[in-house]
Amino acid sequence: MRRFVLIAIPYLWLLALFLVPFAIVLKISLSDAAIARPPYFPQFDWAAGIRAFISELDFENYIFLTQDDLYWKAYLSSVKIALISTALTLLVGYPIAYGMARAPQEWRATLMMLVILPFWTSFLIRVYAWMGILSNEGYLNQFLMWTGLISEPLTILNTQTAVYIGIVYTYLPFMILPIYSALDRLDGSLIEAAEDLGCSRAQAFWLVTIPLSRPGIIAGCFLVMIPVIGEFVIPSLLGGSGTLMIGKVLWEEFFSNRDWPVASAVAIVLLLILVIPIVLFQRNQQKQAEAEQ
């Protein structure tokens, strides 16, 4: 009985506040927009019965999504930005994780803390910090003009470049930590063995270190890519009107256009796009957990 209660409380909480809301989103995505409160139709009516209710639902909003260029372009560009920025984050993050794993033992705890600290600091503030750096009169342009490298300020804020910088910056800890933990566990004698057997250092890196840190690389890439696809704060503060991302479209559809059914349909399609990487990620994590036990 006690066991039942222990299971039931978190289970019911998640059912009510995680699963049921999705069912509602799905239902509203099949409804029509209406000028009413709440602004969609049909409302569930017990008297009319469930069959009459279902007959009112249709796929009109999804058809609308395919017809208007805005939406599929936003999905495509979100996925593109997510893929490119994941690759960039890996390129920046791997050497840092590698350096940490090769650092003297007594430094590692401090280095680890230095990576985690920005992760605890407000995401919003970290994105905001770049607004001052990248703007036309910002610190970066001031610095570059002072060194004489450029004579005219570069336009970086409100372009996709700024979005990439913002993503790499804010998501870097998510890439570094899993790679570091994979590299940390790596047995150094394996690399020595490869070098003894005639590998150059570069070959040993490619043939031993990279494959053995692969679980960390995969986990890091998913941890960056999945949330970036739905990212809202970075494109809206750094991307300007030229950056199209689906999280921003959904936000505006909901708060500015007040078209809840279309916003719900946008959310459902986004979720369908994310199902593949989420399932792959969970499988990777499970495999790793089993390997550890």
């Binding site: 809301p21 989103v25 941890l223 949330p227 986004l270 994310l274 989420i278």
Partner: peptide, 15 residues
């Protein structure tokens, strides 16, 4: 853990 915040927010609001 990996759900985009916009979706979590929207679904809870509709609930």
């Amino acid at each position: 853990l990996v759900m985009p915040e916009v979706i979590t927010g929207l679904s809870l609001l509709l609930l």
